[in-house]
Write a protein that binds this DNA or RNA. Structure first.
Lengths: 220, 220
DNA sequence: TTGTGCTTTACCGATTCTTTACCCTATTTT
DNA sequence: AAAATAGGGTAAAGAATCGGTAAAGCACAA
């Protein structure tokens, strides 16, 4: 983690707001207030993502974006006051990975940035994500990211993880999850499996739960 | 610790609600019900953070915010009924460090306030607080402040502190706290945990007890 | 006994988790 | 190809858990 973000924005106040917000979340940041030096800075390779304003005093953000793309594959988020579809398309055509329409919430920005960084990381051949269950602490990690699971999800994960390759019917899972002999609707298991899948996949873990049609599920 | 918070809010009822909630958590508070004297009060340097209502009878909160910023770097949280994105950005542009949209929960407010104070403190190069248990003297200190604990709280703290990161069920805690095989209501543990948390947090110690829903607690 | 401080219980409101219901898509069977 | 069955996704109903408050219970000393 601790990604380094380049913020290119001429409104200094906005730029520093963004910076301090990101820093509060553990990012490192660097600000530039015009187009000068942006290409040079990025080509140095020290940045993990770029937040790029569309309208800069000296150069067109779009042009700058294209220039950056020619340099390297760094993730770029365009920030723009424009809202027309065509502008968005232009931005994405120029090589931006995402765009934010001003005014945007810093929260949304951070969320998109995170998603982008995760995607970028995966693309760079970091497929070897590992799952780690710390049973004493009752915590689950995908690499270094913690996955927060509900009690049922946790139990479900443990069952699967302890029996890789083995197929489980929903009936079986039900009886392993609940110590009491509770009977629940089949579809309940579906929902828990879906939620578990979702949380794992959100951390860049390839969906490890295979559906066996007419039978149940299998961890692989 | 014992941060001093300035609450600027014309609705007296809301203001005193906020104040008493914060005081319960060990903050000191001061209320002002209009813009008069706010700048003077803050420039005195006696406040660690300001909760500032956007709409005041006499002056615009936004203007006030900017005026405060010119004075000093005190953390400011804007409270506003507005929800539009653009307003939020305006607030942040004016130098607010965070904003709360009314109606907000006092809990969220406290959480954000804490985060803000922590950041501010870190910026000022203050290292994190440390806990020290003097078992021989049966005394507990957060940095140099003594925390007075009841016998049960002390035992609870020792159990947690000796097992950082480990998850405990309430049942387990119960049996470790009591040498006799006493059985108490589950909720009893909750109360002791709450009291322990409260005392630690009041001394500026970040709540170190994480709740594991459906399981129990963990010290981290 | 009365008072004081600590512990335990009871309860409420808020939050979080679980289960169900529903709709739509995918797969299998007729 | 049409019908039947199974599974995925969403959202809302329902249930359990948790934190906070306050009062009752307890132990011990004055």
């Amino acid at each position: 983690m601790n990604a380094h973000i380049l913020i290119v924005e001429d409104e200094r106040k906005l730029a520093s707001n963004i910076a301090s917000y990101l820093e509060a979340f553990g990012f490192r940041t660097t600000m530039l207030h015009d187009g000068q030096g942006v290409v040079a800075a990025v080509s140095g390779g020290g940045f993990d993502a770029v937040l790029l304003d569309w309208l800069l005093p000296d150069v067109d953000g779009l042009t700058l974006c294209q220039a950056l793309r020619r340099q390297c594959a760094v993730p770029i988020i365009m920030m723009t006051a424009r809202v027309e579809e065509s502008d968005r398309i232009d931005g994405l055509d120029a090589g931006a990975d995402d765009y934010l329409c001003k005014p945007f919430s810093l929260r949304e920005m951070t969320a998109r940035l995170r998603a982008l960084l995760r995607r970028a990381q995966m693309r760079q051949g970091k497929p070897s994500t590992g799952l780690h269950i710390d049973d004493a602490a009752h915590r689950v990690f995908v690499d270094s990211d913690e996955v927060t699971l509900t009690p049922v999800e946790y139990r479900l994960l443990k069952i699967f993880h302890a029996n890789p390759g083995r197929a489980f019917t929903r009936y079986e899972l039900q009886h392993r999850i609940y110590t009491d002999c509770r009977i629940v609707n089949d579809r309940t298991i579906n929902v828990h499996v879906k939620n578990l899948r979702q949380k794992l996949v959100a951390c860049g873990f390839d969906d490890p739960i295979a559906t066996i049609h007419g039978i149940g599920y299998r961890w692989s």
